[in-house]
Design a binder for these strands. Sequence first.
RNA 1: GCUGAGGUGGCAGAAUGGUUAAUGCGUCGGACUGCAGAUCCGAUUCCUGGGGGUUCGAUUCCCUCCCUCAGCUCCA
Length: 480
Amino acid sequence: MRRFELYDTLSRSTRLFVPLVPPKIGLFVCGLTPYADAHIGHGKVAVTFDVVARALRRWGYRVFSVQNVTNIDDRLIARGGETGTDPLVLADRHIAAWHGAMDRLGVTSVNYYPHATDYVPEILAQIQTLIEKGFAYAAMGSVYYDIAKFPSYGALSGQKADALRPGARVPPEPGKRAPADFVLWKAATPGEPTWESPWGPGRPGWHIEDTAISVRLFGARYDIHGGGLDLKFPHHEAEIAQAEAATGASPLVNFWMHVGLLTMKGEKMSKSVGNVVGLEEAIDEFGPEVVRFFYLNAHYRSPLDYVPGRSLEESAEAFRTLSQSAGRIRAAAASAGPERVGDDLPAELANAAASTVEALDEAMAQDFHSREAIAALFQWTTRLNENLPALDSLSSESLAAILGPYEWAAEVLGILVGAPAADHSTLGAAVEVILAARARARARSDFAEADRIRSELAEAGIVIEDDGAATRWHLGGPDR
RNA sequence: GCUGAGGUGGCAGAAUGGUUAAUGCGUCGGACUGCAGAUCCGAUUCCUGGGGGUUCGAUUCCCUCCCUCAGCUCCA
């Protein structure tokens, strides 16, 4: 197991990570509230923790990765009311869409997506415990957390309860003892989905599901809790108060990871502001790997600014250098098969491949610094292009060695995974016929004809590039 | 107002108490090419918000001011 350092929001410091029970790591991430389609900010969080889990597993840890789904909440009810849909049905629809987007994005690391509504017994039990221990009180059919009973409330975000602006955004509720108390159980309102409880029919508050689920799955304490930076307060603060009061164990988690928010031209992307770019749309236009590259090309804790018409375009351009190089070597390795005898790599290049892989792991071991890893991938690619021997005469072993850094990227970052070979398709065969005709034209110096073929192919979305005697092609052109 | 993060080259975005401040994008030039593209080489006049301080030396540490973003019970 590789040692690595991780920044913890609670202690505001980076320190060596030590699992509670090696080699296991419990990772809990605040997932989605399925009331609308995902935007590219949600994708950033998903990809961040996907990469975290992938890296940890590569290093030998046994990660149990959980992302909860808040499938009952105010916005779902509101949206259901607007559209005349049962909120739970609406939720299921968006959950299915989310999983579809995650599959396309290559987010493969999550073990379990618990739904809040499947944990109502645990939620009720935890609320009951909080009441019995004196941390919560029932009032008018609801149950509230009494933050005065939990002195360290606010430690995560640095907020002091008495410095908050009470009612700044949400009107005070009549049953609360203090404005900053938060709801654990909401009394039923007509027309909403409800569950029976000792305090009457109602539904869970926003924060309680997370700790009901995490205590059930991980116990009183676990290793990492993640989410967007905007959840730090009040959501994660409330989780600490609930779980630590209910279980008596502290700290709830050893490391709090908060992902920097995605902004649009400097302003936070959110549904309430209305400046959202759909995740699926971005994937449609640029492909999943470019979207991942865009996220990973900045440190996960930094805010990342999205500028329409520029950010993903630049990412696509930069990513192309890597994907082109990786693609060519993958193709060569595929055609060489596993046992081709051939030239060995120059020693310098072989050493560089190995040290690049080490540099990549080391970059990630430094608080998951994917940006530094990507810089190392570019340096490797330049080095490779500088002194690359003829690929078709290299041994299988040599090809595997120079593929190493790209295999690492596929495993950990989920990019450069290698596309299915297009040259076996009908299209590929047809293009080869056309390219052969063009090659004959070039051979007799009929460049007008050769250029005409090239430009017509480009209009059809096929870009060709001459490289010495060979001509490569790929899909591209104006539509992509 | 309170809490937190941050202000780096044309742009995006790293890092470090000390030789030329990573990497990418863009632009310009060169090599290669019939041309283009890709690739390689070089350049883009040493750019760290302002002002103090600590230090032999700070972009990095301290103080202060200015500005930006986020949070202050919808939010990933």
